[in-house]
Simulated assay, not measured.
Amino acid sequence: MRADRATRLASLERWRDLFRIRLRGRWRPAAIAMFVFAGALFVTTSINSKGLDLRESSITDLDHVVRSERDHAKDLQDRVASLNREVGSLSRQVSNTRVEQLQAEVDELRDPAGFSAVNGPGLTVTLTDAPKKEIDAANADPNDELTPDDLVVHQQDIQAVVNALWAGGAEAMTIQGQRVISTTGVKCVGNTVVLHGVPYSPPYRISAIGDVDALQTSLDDSDYVNAYLQFVDVYSLGYQTEASSRLEFPAYEGVATLKFAKAGDAPQQVRD
């Protein structure tokens, strides 16, 4: 009896060991496949995120995204400026009469084109969105004709101030500290304004060098600026002017290539 039991026990142990070997052989490739799949998933996520966090909390953090994109654009602009200076330095080293003549013409146009630093008396206009409570109130009442879109600064508001300052004899101008030149465009992207590829959030500061009185008079005479001021009075949009005895503007150091241009006589837009 004991021999039979020993034989049965030995047989069961052999079957158990055989089952473990087979089970181990099946799980090993499965485990490897799972690790490979997980690695591929991590790589795909990293590529799609392009350096941004894909979690919902980060997606909604628009300020973080704006700051990140602005820093990236600033790095690219600094690189462009460095390359432009290098090209200019190499061009001046070329001993050729025609090249020297062209370089002299370029140097003569640098100031009026905005490629030289300038300073002088001027005026700064600051535009800001309405207070959050006003925007929340507009969101809360769907029957109200006033919308949150009416309570924020738009590109046409900035452009109207810019146009009025140019009309007032501005000699040079900056928006958010960036030099404005003939190819400068102001664009709205969401609730930010993009200038030279860099996104900015309010407040928006537009500064101009020139005769302060003439600049202020031109702002006062602008139909669009006066329409904007009605929203300032009723809904507390921000509008402030500040005269300065000396403003200092940097030279424009970005790309100045004109890609698209079309002449036209579009009527001036006025905020409803």
Rank of each mutant, 00 (worst) to 15 (best):
T257R: 10
G254A: 08
T184E: 02
N191M: 03
Q216P: 05
V212I: 15
D221G: 12
F260C: 04
Y200S: 10
G177K: 07
G210W: 09
V198F: 01
V232L: 03
D213C: 00
V234P: 01
A256G: 11
T183N: 09
K259I: 15
I181A: 05
A227T: 01
R246F: 06
Y200F: 14
G190F: 00
V198W: 00
V180C: 06
G185T: 14
P250G: 10
V186C: 01
A227M: 02
D233H: 06
K187V: 10
T184Q: 07
G190I: 01
L215T: 06
F260W: 10
T217I: 05
C188P: 01
A214V: 00
V198C: 05
G177L: 09
N191D: 14
V212Y: 08
Q216T: 14
V234G: 07
I206Q: 10
N191F: 01
F249N: 08
R246I: 08
L258A: 07
A261F: 07
Y224M: 10
G210Q: 12
D223L: 04
Q240P: 05
A263L: 15
T184I: 06
I181D: 09
G190V: 00
S201I: 03
T241L: 11
G177C: 07
A243T: 15
Q240R: 15
N191P: 03
N226P: 05
F260A: 12
G210M: 08
H196N: 13
R246P: 00
P202I: 00
A208N: 12
P203T: 08
A251S: 09
Y224C: 11
I175H: 04
Q216M: 11
A251D: 09
K259W: 13
T241H: 10
A261G: 12
R246V: 07
V212E: 09
S182G: 07
Q176P: 02
K262V: 10
V180D: 06
D220I: 12
V189Y: 13
F231V: 02
V232R: 01
S207Q: 08
S218Q: 04
S182T: 12
G197L: 04
T217Y: 04
H196P: 04
